[in-house]
Design a protein around this nucleic acid. Structure first.
Length: 350
DNA sequence: ATGGTATATTATCGCGGGCG
DNA sequence: CGCCCGCGATAATATACCAT
């Protein structure tokens, strides 16, 4: 296992530091509202999240009864960098088991303890303070890492995993979900589509995309997180936010979206659609310009996958850089000697 | 029409690592 | 030792959109 040079680990640690991004509640709600019926009676697991700061935890705790969850599990990674004003509860006294040590929270029911007829965070707060077993430490040497034995045991128990995983470990993270055959709904970067390992799942229809993809999403970051680009920085109520485009929901939960036909209006013509130099496919530079009447192979931008309906199109492969591998054709997306950006190679099924 | 903003698509560059 | 390759919670540019 430990055959890699030390500085690889250092490099990784450096990257891991940049994995402290907190998804906003509004983004979670916007996506999750489409799946409500799929959560009934399910065990939901949010790992890679500090429950006292995570909006994933907040969402599922507050909607525990409305969704009809069977159980909610959350685990935290070592330590927490986010400022106190971002904590979900004002009075943290006695809530965190051992300061900065990793821990887990398990919730089986959320009673309306303050009898106000509504379930909210104050009920959760009551629960955590009175049910001693709901919040327990994890082993220190496991660090609450999703790859640790304890976290894997919790994963086995789960039906659906929902989180914003560390992007630097995205391949590994998805591989683990697949290995344990879990349903999931997680955030990821658009360019992860072009990863060999990830695209394989997409091509084999084991992984697709949710509803609220692309656009700009704002993430809470630690105060000392350096944001070089001014337009991507925002400070509101003393909380620092960082904006990112190209963020997508990766999932294997069914969506209505992927059964809807993507409306095509363009007609194919030889003049408008160029062929690649040495590959029999046409270049389609914009997803909306996919011709409705071309029967051969087409190279389209990777954002096509946001519109992908497996009954309408077949994904044949990918051309990205010069990568050659399973479903990867090498740099075939070249016109007049110039290579285009990565392309998904598709075929109309109709 | 128009200017500012959001989204879609494409491009770049520095750096570590593998390899001859 | 030097070169090339792969890669990025990137960076920049081109459109689309929208309120005035």
């Amino acid at each position: 296992m430990n055959d890699k040079p030390l500085n690889t680990n250092l490099h990784k640690a450096n990257l891991a530091k940049k994995d402290e991004f907190y998804t906003q509640l509004v983004d979670i709600e916007k996506e999750l509202k489409h799946y409500k019926d799929q959560f009934r009676g399910k065990v939901v697991y949010c790992n890679c999240d500090d429950p006292y700061e995570s909006n994933f935890f907040k969402y599922f705790a507050a909607n525990f009864n409305a969704l009809g969850l069977k159980k909610l599990i959350t685990t935290t990674f070592d330590g927490s960098p986010v400022a106190d004003q971002q904590l979900l509860f004002k009075d943290m006294e006695g809530l965190k088991p051992n300061g900065k040590e990793p821990f887990k929270i398990e919730i089986y029911e959320v009673p309306d303890k303050n009898n106000d007829g509504a379930i909210d965070l104050s009920d959760i707060e009551w629960l955590l303070k009175h049910e001693k077993n709901s919040s327990t430490p994890l082993k220190k040497d496991g660090h609450g890492d999703f790859r640790s034995d304890e976290c894997i045991e919790l994963l086995k128990e789960a039906d659906i995993v929902v989180t914003n995983p560390p992007f630097s470990l995205f391949r590994e993270y998805v591989a683990q979900l697949m290995e344990y055959n879990k349903k999931f709904l997680i955030l990821g970067d658009q360019n992860a589509i072009t990863y060999k390992e990830i695209f394989k799942f997409i091509k084999e229809n084991k992984l697709w995309f949710g509803y609220d993809n692309g656009g700009t999403k704002w993430f809470q970051v630690p105060d000392d997180y350096d944001i070089p680009t001014e337009s991507r920085k925002k400070i509101k109520n003393g909380i620092k936010y960082f904006s990112m485009g190209r963020i997508m929901w990766y999932t294997n939960l069914d969506t209505t979206k992927r059964h809807e036909e993507f409306t095509l209006y363009k007609k194919y013509s030889q003049e408008e659609y160029l062929k690649y130099d040495s590959f029999d496919a046409i270049e389609v530079s914009k997803v909306v310009d996919i011709p409705k009447d071309y029967t051969g192979l087409m190279g389209v931008p990777i954002t096509f996958l946001d519109k992908y309906n497996p009954d309408q199109f077949e994904i044949v492969g990918m051309s990205s850089g010069n990568i050659v591998g399973e479903y990867f054709f090498g740099g075939v997306h070249i016109i007049n000697g110039k290579m285009k950006y990565a392309r998904v190679i598709i075929k109309n099924k109709k």
